[in-house]
Design a binder for these strands. Structure first.
Ligand SMILES: [Mn+2]
Ligand SMILES: [Mn+2]
Ligand SMILES: [Zn+2]
Ligand SMILES: [Zn+2]
Lengths: 136, 136
DNA sequence: TAATCTTTGCAATCGAGTTGCGGTAAATGC
DNA sequence: GCATTTACCGCAACTCGATTGCAAAGATTA
């Protein structure tokens, strides 16, 4: 597992106090987080600073965003070597019971045969249902 | 192609003036529409009436909603026989250039092998890129 | 050091979505 | 038919996640 500093260096994002704290926080969690989640977890940090940090991270492929339909965009740290290309696509799982969102890095995404002349750039694939913890 | 009246009858939604107009409008278009899109197209109709109509339609499986990441939920008429079950799942294509969203009814969705004990209920699968018209 | 560029904190704003409420229309009961 | 109940509609106000303007603080460069 890479450290915050290593990741920021690789992705050429300048290391600041806010960025280190936000990235460390994201790395410490296994679930995708919303801006509100992060705000709540780091109450001494300013919302707009976190917001701009997330934007910077996303632009520089440090994290990727997920629209899980909960009304809040969620963010998760990109896997090592991820470049946010179609090849890095993976499903996300949104638990309708506990409202948590997971990156399913291990579930393969099949080739999608688009209609003629359509060009694939990215995707937002969210599978919804019950997570293992809620499915009892 | 079924008429508005037929669809509403099948789905057991009472036929009113607002509902007929909104559904007819959706049927006349090949792309998914946002509330704002519909508002703009039908300026004499009230936003909240359209909104509540869309909610009623969605609850009764007349339409389904799509989170395409554009910031606005889009809505498309369900295919004949659709019950909004996992079996009715299909990809959606969002064009990052012209901001249009398509239902890809003809592209098969493969089986998704979820992690142990995860239960599939629904999905929001949005593929993004350039549509045939914008990919030149 | 002085000038310049970047990041941060705070407050204000935006905008899609949602709701309360009173009026109108449709359905129900007699 | 007429009274009562229920559903729907239009309008305005509100919610809340996201975004921005601006000035202060910090970092970088000359
Ligand atoms: Mn992910
Ligand atoms: Mn669709
Ligand atoms: Zn869960
Ligand atoms: Zn297009």
């Amino acid at each position: 597992m890479q450290t915050e500093e290593e990741i920021l260096k690789i992705k050429k994002v300048k290391n600041t106090a806010v960025r280190t704290v936000v990235l460390r926080h994201l790395l410490s969690l296994e679930k995708a987080q919303s801006l509100k989640d992060i705000e709540n977890a780091l109450p001494y940090m300013d919302r707009s600073s976190i917001f701009r940090t997330l934007k910077t991270f996303e632009e520089n492929k440090v994290i990727h965003s997920i629209e899980d339909g909960s009304g809040m965009t969620k963010y998760a740290v990109c896997a090592e070597g991820c470049n946010c290309d179609p090849k890095d696509l993976h499903y996300h799982f949104y638990c309708t019971n506990c409202d948590k969102t997971f990156c399913l890095f291990d579930v393969p995404i099949p080739n999608i045969q688009l209609p003629k002349n359509f060009k694939l750039q990215q995707a937002n694939m969210v599978v919804k249902g019950l997570c293992d913890n809620c499915n009892r």
